[in-house]
Structure formats: C-alpha cells, structure tokens
Simulated assay, not measured.
Amino acid sequence: MTYSLAGRCPETGQIGYAVATSSVCVGARVGTVTSECVIFSQARTDPRLHEVGLRAWPGAAGDAQTVVDAMCAAATAPHWRQLGVLPAEGAAAHHTGASCLSHCGAETGAHSLALGNFLGSDRVLGAMIERFEKAGGSLAERLLAGMRAGESAGSEKEPLQSAALVVMGAKNLRDVDLRVDFDADPLSAMGGLLADWLPKAAAYRVRALDPDNAPSSAEVESR
C-alpha cells in the first residue's frame, strides 16, 4: 500500500527518492540511497532487504537487475514484495510479486523509477514518471512534483498518512532528508518542510565540509 519515485539528476550528480503510503512512518521502512543507487523494498515491506541490496551492489558492477535478484533470493515470500533499484548510471530494475495488491507495478523514465501497489488507478505510475521527467527545479522539488502528480492521478485506495523525501548529494552528504510520519495530507506537509529546508541546505553542507567557515545557527535559521 505504497507508491514511490526514485530519480537522478545528471547535471548535479544527485540521486534520491520520495515515498508515500496510507500507514504511518513510511520513512522508517521504505527506501535507502547511496551516491550510487536508490534501493526500494515495499508492499509487505521487509526493511532488511535494503541491506541485502547494498551488500550486493559492489559485486553487481552497477547492474541493477543483479541487485534485485539478490534481494528476491533473500526475501521471505517474495510474492508479497515489491523491490526496485535505480542506479546513478544505467537502467533501473524492479520486481512486483504476484500477491501485491492491484493496481500495482513499476514504470521507468530516462532518469526515474516509479513503484506502487494498491493504487487508486492504473494511471498513477505513468503520471509520476511524466511529471518528474518534465519538471524543473531541484531534484527534491522534481521528486515531490512527481509524487503530487501520482496523487492527482489516483493516489492509493486508502488516504495517505506519511511520506519521506531523501536526496544524496556530493561527497556522500544528504542534501535533503525529510519525513512526515503522520499527517492527514502528508505530501502537502512535505512541501512545507521542503520549502523551509532548501534555503538552509547549503549552509548545513558547509558545516559538514568546512566548519571553520560555517554560518552560525542564527544565520542559518534566518534564511
């Protein structure tokens, strides 16, 4: 009962994902990202499969299907699992088990991967990909735009309750890492968080990389 969107930006080198679901605290269960890939485990989620994917990645030589195969092999009852991998370069791969609730499946774009199950219509995934691929702005803004397009196209069959948005930037630092654990309109709440965070993100990056020249807390919060 989840839909998610992974995306990458060739211009900035960022890669990240957004996810929403009709249960609480989705950010604790669905999705992980490194500078090299996004990995999803959802539907009847087993978050431990993210670690399986991360362990398989180095030996996969960037082959996303090899990672998905390793996750399927490690999964208990893979027919209930929905898995996906979007690499920083190359083709995405995905698996939707036969027991995942309809509408369900995956779609890919030039730089994106959408997964979903228990969706309100069969148009959700295509709407997410189309909006992401055409949207402007930062990667985080494009991911959120894709999620909102999916919501407008049918969302889930149950009301959304939580969302998460994560973007990995240069030097293995997360440029965005936001969660809405419980809200009647989590994607709108996420939009508010993102609008507040983005003007401050660069300052916190400086704090990590060059603390001697980092702005003070008061300077950051005034942005």
Score class of each variant (00 low, 15 high):
V180M: 02
G53S: 10
A208H: 11
A140H: 10
G59W: 00
V67R: 08
G53N: 11
A60V: 01
N213I: 00
I15M: 10
T96Y: 04
D46I: 00
G137K: 06
V68A: 04
V124M: 05
L160W: 05
A74L: 06
T76A: 11
E130N: 13
V206Q: 09
Q42I: 03
S112A: 15
L209Q: 13
S222H: 07
S41K: 14
F40L: 09
V24G: 14
A163L: 07
G31S: 08
A201P: 14
T21A: 14
T21Q: 10
G7Y: 02
A6W: 01
S155A: 15
D177L: 02
L86D: 03
K157D: 04
C72V: 15
A163K: 14
G7W: 01
R142W: 01
E11H: 10
A77S: 12
F182W: 03
A153E: 06
Y204D: 04
H103C: 10
V68W: 01
M147H: 08
V220H: 05
K134T: 10
G7L: 03
M168C: 14
R205Y: 03
L86Q: 05
D196G: 10
G59N: 11
A92F: 01
L125G: 14
H103R: 09
Q42V: 04
K200Q: 11
P58H: 05
E130D: 15
A93G: 05
D181H: 08
D46H: 09
R81N: 10
R8T: 06
D69Y: 03
A218H: 08
